[in-house]
Simulated scan of single mutants.
Amino acid sequence: MPAHHLDAPQAVLFDMDGTLIDTEPLWMAAEVALTSRFGVPWTAEDAAAIIGSAMTSAAAVLQGRGVDLPVPEIVEDLTAHVAAAVSDEVPWQPGARELLAAVRAAGIPTALVTSSYRTLAEPFVAAAGGFDAVVAGDDVRRAKPDPEPYLTAARLLGVDVERCVALEDSRSGSASAVASGARTVLVEGLQEVADRPGMSRVASLRDLTVEHLVRLAAGETLVVPPTR
C-alpha cells in the first residue's frame, strides 16, 4: 500500500529493546552479572520492573540496591555487556524484520526511538538497514516516559506526531508514546502494561500489517488477535 494513501501513517516510530529485538534477557543477564559482583540480590521481578526505563533511572535503582558505582559507570557496564551480545547476533523479535520491510516497501518513513544509548543503537541500526531518524536515550534531556523522545523523532522526520504510529512494549515507553500524541500500539512483552485510553494492543509483531497501521493512523483503536 503506497504511503500517499490518504490515511497512511506519516511515519512508524519503533521502540528497540523488547519491541524490535529481544534484548530484555540480555539486559537481565547484564544486571545479574553486575549485582553479583557487589553481592546484591537481583530477581527476574526486579529486572522486569525497570524494563523501558531511562538508562540513568535503571542505573540509579541498581545503585540504590547496593551496586557501589557512579550511575554513568553502571550505564556503561550494562550497555557494553548488551552491545557485545547484540554484535554477535541480533536477536530479532518474531515478525519484526518482516513488518519493518513491509513498512519500508509501502514508502512510509521509519524512526527508531529507544531508551538505549547510541553505542548500542547504532550497531542495530546498521544491522536493520537504517532508519530515517534515530533518537537514542542520550539524545534527549527527558527520556521515556516523557514524550520528548517521540516528539523529537517526529520533528526530525518533519511529520505530525499525531499522524504517526508508535510501537512499544513497556509501561515507560507506551506512556511516552501516548503522551506525545502518537497512535500507540502495545506489543505484549515481559512487562504487564495496563490499558491506556486510545492505546491499541497486539500479541506479536507477526500479527501486525501495514493495513492495520493505516487503520490506526485513521483513528481506530485495535486489539489484534494472534494469527497463530
Rank of each mutant, 00 (worst) to 15 (best):
H212S: 06
E24K: 10
A153V: 08
T56Q: 12
V140T: 14
A80R: 07
D132M: 08
E211H: 14
H4W: 08
E89M: 08
V86E: 00
F124D: 05
E188H: 14
Q93R: 14
L190Y: 03
C164P: 06
R215P: 15
P94S: 12
A175N: 01
L186I: 13
A54S: 04
P72L: 13
T119E: 12
Q63I: 13
I50R: 10
T119M: 09
L20E: 01
S172V: 07
T56M: 04
L205H: 07
D207F: 13
R155T: 09
E162S: 14
R142P: 09
L69C: 07
R104M: 07
A179F: 08
S57L: 13
M28H: 13
L208K: 00
T35F: 04
D15T: 11
I21G: 03
V214G: 01
R206E: 15
P2A: 14
S116Q: 08
A127V: 07
R215H: 13
R228I: 08
A133F: 04
A218F: 06
R104C: 02
V224P: 01
T23W: 04
L157D: 12
S172E: 05
L26T: 01
I74V: 10
S200H: 02
S172G: 14
V159S: 10
A136Q: 02
S204M: 09
V214M: 01
S200I: 11
E45K: 09
S172Q: 11
T227V: 07
I21V: 15
E192F: 07
R228M: 08
S200F: 00
F124V: 12
V135G: 06
P91F: 00
A58S: 14
P197E: 09
D138S: 13
G219Y: 04
M199R: 04
A177H: 00
L167T: 03
S53C: 08
R65V: 03
T114V: 13
V67Y: 01
S204D: 11
M199Q: 08
D68S: 12
E31Y: 10
A83L: 07
G189S: 15
T110S: 10
A83H: 05
V67W: 03
L13P: 01
G173L: 09
P147N: 07
G181V: 14
E73V: 06
V90Q: 02
E98A: 15
V185E: 04
T227E: 00
P94H: 09
A48W: 02
E188K: 15
P25V: 08
P149M: 07
A182M: 08
W42P: 10
R142C: 15
V134T: 09
R37P: 13
P145K: 01
V159E: 06
L120G: 03
S115H: 06
S53R: 10
A126W: 06
R183L: 14
G137P: 06
E45W: 00
E148Q: 12
A166Y: 00
D207E: 12
T119G: 15
A48G: 07
M28R: 15
F131S: 02
P2Q: 12
A44K: 13
A54D: 05
L167E: 00
V67H: 00
V223A: 12
E168D: 10
